[in-house]
Design a protein around this nucleic acid. Structure first.
Lengths: 343, 343
DNA sequence: CTTTTCTGTGGAAGCGTTTTCATGACTTGA
DNA sequence: TCAAGTCATGAAAACGCTTCCACAGAAAAG
């Protein structure tokens, strides 16, 4: 039915080997033979079969993006879209395609990834937001396929094939704590992401450690899981603010959750920052345009994606390990945090 | 090196055919043979090669998501992330993987897609945001592969294999025009997306036609391309508002662009809605939490993704055409539009 | 006790490429 | 003029699986 290399060969009066050589720009083929073959290919509308090709050579130029959801919900966080877009641009330049897995079952994911690697379907992996229990990386480290983790991974896991690109979540959130305390806040709550991911753990821990360093009691009840969406964060914030009226500030571990806090404050008739201060994280498009503009930390999401992809490709091509990299962030002091010191 | 079906067969003392049958749950294999084979497979850590498998059968269970960028910029619009996430969930349930192409060269894209189809690498396509010049669909209609377009496509293109899922952009924007006029606005500007996509064209045309129906002169200078990002929209809005001081309302064809308008208004010391009214489109997470809350039209993005994916899979599986579907939207009247009639 | 029908299994031909090796023809250098 | 070296090409094996066909042996039917 579909034209194959064999048919082309026959029509052009040459062997399959020659046709193959023409396709792969092998130098040892006479110009007239080449053009003859090319014209037959055009005439027949011949399209090479990537599968067959992959089977006899070193497979496909794909990279797998694994995006571990903490819930069964599609994450509406703009972070993921942006970062996937950035990776996509670099992939496109390198003539690679993206395969996307959004899974919330780690074992399934491991099995699928192993199968893809074994089948030479992918040449590298980008792991978005790694879990604290990192079985996935432990298993995949053994496959010698380059992996870049956008985020942190188990520090005891040493591998030539795994590299991390991240921002310093712990330090940033430690600094947020410092700032909040400096502004006179001693009753601080936190709406965070589910704690089975490093990023959430580090952000929470940074804040807590900073509070402890200033001898502020950390009330565990004031640290609540705000899920992944505005709505879940809203519910969590409502709860938090109702049951802890002494709170003067809330740290939301990303600006989507801050949106939930804004919504809760509005519905409770709490003014920001007069009645409750809010500190966010990530600095999304809308953050500066909220009322009041959200104080947050700017994460270079686009760069995170670009740099990760670049590192991945240089590992794939040069087969040498890249260095881990910590990207700089920048505090965006706007007006959602009140200074309690000057009344 | 890697264990193949042949090695398994040898170790288990059976033929390759039998091993294959075991893997594919063929009924005609004795229980003891089956368990023998399975144990050898486990012992050898055998993983089937998807490529080889695909080559001899009907290929892969992948669907291709094509996401046509209008610029070279990664689109930061939350719309895409959300919709891809939704499609991903349905795909996961059906045991399909997602391949993502974000391309801005249509010819390249056509060639790549044809190659993937020819190689049995994909079973269906989701096209996000189709171009007005729809060469892509025209060419691909001939391949008999199911395609769902999220958005509109050339109505003259009839195909058993193409189905569209969309909202009624034209009508919604016509209604927006009506509303604006009813509120007393007669000098209306518009910040829209690049006009090489149906969605932008329809939204703009809806507004224009509504204005014309009310005998309001449409000033082409007040319809400007706001690109794809907050920043480009901001620049466009700044320009628009500076050079057309008589404007009392601006329609932004999506809420990301509305963000740009808010920013411009703020920087020009224009109050919303007192000095300038803003109507958005899409209703993103942040829209209700802006100050003032943005009047916009709620698009069921998640449903758009889910329904598209469902239709695609039923076309793939049942091989029968699904009906086009128009999803309902809902106006969200908030407070970014002033009523000029009651002062 | 034959003949027919199942059943479980093996052999081998695909699937569509790439690539190694062999083979002639044609140069080149002494 | 002949041995050695290029060069363009073809034959065939390999990549790892599926599946059609054939074939025994067992079960069912006459």
């Amino acid at each position: 039915m579909k034209p194959t290399i064999q048919l082309v060969a026959k029509k052009a009066g040459v062997s399959m080997s020659t046709v193959s050589r023409v396709m792969n720009n092998h130098p040892a083929v006479l110009p007239e033979t080449r053009s003859k073959v090319l014209s037959v290919m055009k005439e027949l509308d011949y399209i090479p079969n990537q599968l067959a090709r992959g089977l006899s050579t070193n497979g496909f130029n794909n990279i797998l993006i694994i995006f571990t959801r903490s819930s069964t919900q599609a994450a509406d966080n703009p972070y993921f879209g942006n970062i996937i877009g950035s990776i996509g641009m670099v992939a496109e330049q390198n003539d690679y395609d993206l395969i996307l897995h959004s899974n919330n079952n780690e074992d399934d994911e491991i099995e699928k990834a192993l199968s893809m690697i074994n089948s030479k379907l992918i040449k590298g992996i980008v792991l978005l937001s790694s879990r604290t229990n990192n079985k996935f990386l432990e298993v995949l480290a053994g496959t010698r396929i380059p992996i870049v983790v956008i985020g942190k991974y188990n520090p005891s896991l040493q591998s030539e094939y795994i590299v991390s690109v991240d921002t310093d979540n712990y330090q940033d959130c430690y600094d947020i704590g410092d700032y909040l305390l400096q502004m006179g806040h001693t009753h601080i709550g936190c709406i965070h992401a589910p704690l089975n991911h490093y990023v959430a753990v580090d952000r929470v821990q940074g804040l807590k450690d900073s509070m402890k360093a200033h001898h502020i009691t950390v009330d565990e009840d004031c640290f609540v899981d705000g899920g992944d969406t505005v709505d879940t964060a809203y519910m969590a914030a409502l709860n938090l603010l109702c049951s802890n009226q002494q709170l003067t500030a809330v740290f939301a571990t990303d600006d989507i959750k801050a949106l939930g806090v804004y919504k809760a404050a509005r519905n409770m008739n709490l003014r920001i920052p007069e009645d409750i201060s809010v500190f966010g994280h990530n600095d999304f498009d809308f953050s500066a345009l909220l009322t009041p503009p959200l104080t947050t930390v700017r994460v270079p999401i686009h760069e995170l994606g670009m740099i990760s992809a670049s590192k991945l490709f240089s590992m794939i091509k040069a087969e040498k390990k890249e260095a881990n990299q910590m990207l700089p962030t920048k505090m965006q002091f706007r007006s959602s945090v009140a200074n309690l010191n000057k009344p």
